[in-house]
Design a protein around this nucleic acid. Structure first.
Length: 219
DNA sequence: ACCCAGGGTCATA
DNA sequence: TATGACCATGGG
């Protein structure tokens, strides 16, 4: 069966990455709320910049939904300035915190059904599919496979997926060919990001790459 | 000086 | 549905 072959191949890729880079223990962040804020701030932005922004929020004693929501948006923008797009993201963080407070916070949201939680997140202005899935997986520990630009590029080069497939098509591909295992999805996405940072940014998979055995991509 | 980063929204055709 | 413009800082 082709489906079995695809599943085996995905697991092979995971094991190869896992043995090469080791356990990642994502997401960086001390609390679920910090993870959620980080997920919004890291949109199209280097993580080092996000860390500065989060540190500024901590330093201002403002890394909580009440503080962020009650603060003037201009002040919020100033605090998160290092993460880039600060005016846009200030509005998004504010919208997110409004939703978060309205629903009753983490202690309420953590009991929601996965599909309800995901679609509710997608209803927030500024939360798209990847940000929602980061939050689902890394803040709420739900078995959701996160698809980002690295995922597209890597598995396209490995000859397993198209590059411009719809987000839900990509997510369905992984979720239907892997066990719905939160820990597996957690590590897999983290490893994909680490691998992308390590080598192979714009270059093809190459000799130094942990996955060059599998690569079918031709420049 | 240029490229791009752990995206998403909005306007147009 | 499918592009393109826009948002903006900081590191390589």
């Amino acid at each position: 069966m082709a489906k079995v072959a695809v599943s085996d191949r995905l697991l092979q890729v995971f094991k190869q990455l896992s043995s090469h880079y080791g356990l990642q223990q994502w997401w960086p962040g001390e609390t679920p709320f910090e993870v959620m804020v980080g997920a919004v701030l890291t949109q199209n932005t280097a993580w080092t910049n996000v860390e500065r922004a989060i540190n500024q929020l901590k330093q201002a004693d403002a890394l909580d939904a009440e503080s962020i929501h009650s603060m003037p948006q201009e002040s919020l923008a100033e605090l998160i300035r290092p993460s880039g797009y600060f005016n846009i993201k200030a509005g998004r963080l504010r919208a997110f915190c409004e939703w978060y407070l309205e629903q009753g916070g983490f202690d309420v949201l953590k009991y929601w059904q996965t599909e309800k939680l995901r679609s509710s997140l997608l209803g927030i202005h500024g939360v798209g599919p990847e940000t929602a899935d980061d939050i689902m997986l890394y803040a709420f520990n739900r078995p959701v496979f996160v698809v980002d630009a690295y995922t597209r590029r890597l598995f396209h080069r490995l000859g397993l997926t198209g590059f411009n497939s719809d987000y839900e098509t990509m997510r369905n591909f992984f979720e239907s060919n892997l066990e719905m295992d939160t820990k597996l999805f957690n590590e897999f996405h983290a490893l994909i990001v680490i691998h992308a940072k390590d080598v192979c940014r714009k270059k093809p998979l190459c000799d130094q790459c942990a996955l060059h055995h599998f690569c079918q991509w031709q420049p």
